[in-house]
């Protein structure tokens, strides 16, 4: 296809956008509604994902050492834990260090001191795969000189399964939304083309190739997609910017955070634009296809 033909198609597609003003508006609105829903959804999903990852990273196993354990037995235990399958890293904390931590968290007024320290020394262990935490913890608890093993049993597992579930539901919902949008757009563009059946008919009559006929329509679909993406991008940017400014201060110092404004806003807006272009092109492609069959 020659360059000037491509130029012609661009001009034609733009002209036809304004000629079919109301249909353009209707199709672009369908894109807008969908992209807005999908955008909000993706925004929530990506942040949930981030929180989940932050939490996953933070899950660790606290292995309490028997009070009776000697120094050599403790270093033996450290070796044993290290050789357990799936252990990523291990940090030792003496009973004095444990006490210091406790005092830091709850203050001095507990009547505890180095002399009557009731705490146990501990190992902090991280699993290579956070979801494997339970398995690793079970194995460690069977080692000698372990008093007990804590890893927030139950709670952690519930959180993981909730996040997994939320992710799957989200993916299914997004797919369903996109599908509906494509259907809507392909229908609205079909109506635009129906109104221009005559034009297509005459184009064929004078010997236009299918691509020549299709191109302006596909471009038109692309413009509709871009037009439809403008409002969602604006709203999502405004929404997330404000949410971030309100919520993030409360999360300061927590071990999980929202996704930072950059690059997240660029990513999600780019995604919205891309989806708009894609459903626009796909929608018009599908509806022209029917008219080109001879």
């Amino acid at each position: 296809m020659k360059l000037r033909t491509v130029g012609r198609h661009f001009r034609e597609s733009l002209k036809s956008l304004s000629r079919n003003g109301w249909m353009t508006f209707a199709s672009a609105s369908a894109v807008t509604v969908t992209l807005l829903l999908v955008g909000v959804f993706v925004m929530i999903m990506m942040n949930l994902n981030k929180v989940a990852e932050d939490l996953e990273k933070d899950v660790e196993i606290k292995v309490l050492v028997e009070l009776t354990a000697e120094k050599t037995e403790i270093s033996q235990l450290e070796q044993d834990i290290k050789s357990v399958n799936g252990v990523a890293n291990i940090v030792y904390s003496t009973k004095d260090a444990e006490l210091e931590n406790l005092i830091k968290d709850f203050g001095e007024n507990m009547g505890l001191s180095d002399q009557n320290n009731p705490l146990r020394a501990a190992f902090y262990v991280k699993a290579q795969v956070p979801q494997e935490t339970k398995k690793v913890a079970d194995q460690i608890s069977r080692l000698e000189n372990t008093h007990s093993v804590e890893y927030g049993e139950g709670k952690i597992e519930k959180l993981f399964s909730f996040l997994n579930g939320a992710r799957n539901v989200g993916i299914v919902l997004i797919a369903a939304l996109l599908f509906t949008a494509m259907f809507l757009i392909s229908n609205t563009i079909r109506i635009t083309i129906l109104a221009r059946k005559r034009e297509v008919e005459i184009m064929k009559l004078v010997g236009a190739t299918n691509w020549f006929i299709r191109f302006p329509f596909v471009l038109e679909g692309m413009w509709i997609g871009i037009l439809g993406a403008i409002l969602p991008i604006t709203i999502i940017t405004f929404l997330y910017y404000n949410l971030y400014k309100i919520i993030q201060p409360y999360l300061e110092g927590e071990f999980f955070n929202l996704l930072p404004l950059t690059p997240f806003l660029y990513q999600i807006n780019g995604l919205i634009l891309l989806m708009g272009v894609f459903i626009g092109i796909w929608g018009s492609f599908m509806s022209v296809r029917k008219f080109l069959r001879v």
Partner: peptide
């Protein structure tokens, strides 16, 4: 082939009772 039909059409002029002009 149906792909070649456009090139055939360029070798044939067609005129109809209802003119088939594009109003715009």
């Amino acid at each position: 082939k149906s792909k070649q039909v456009p090139y055939l059409r360029r070798q044939i002029g067609v005129v109809f009772q209802d003119f088939k002009l594009l109003p715009l």
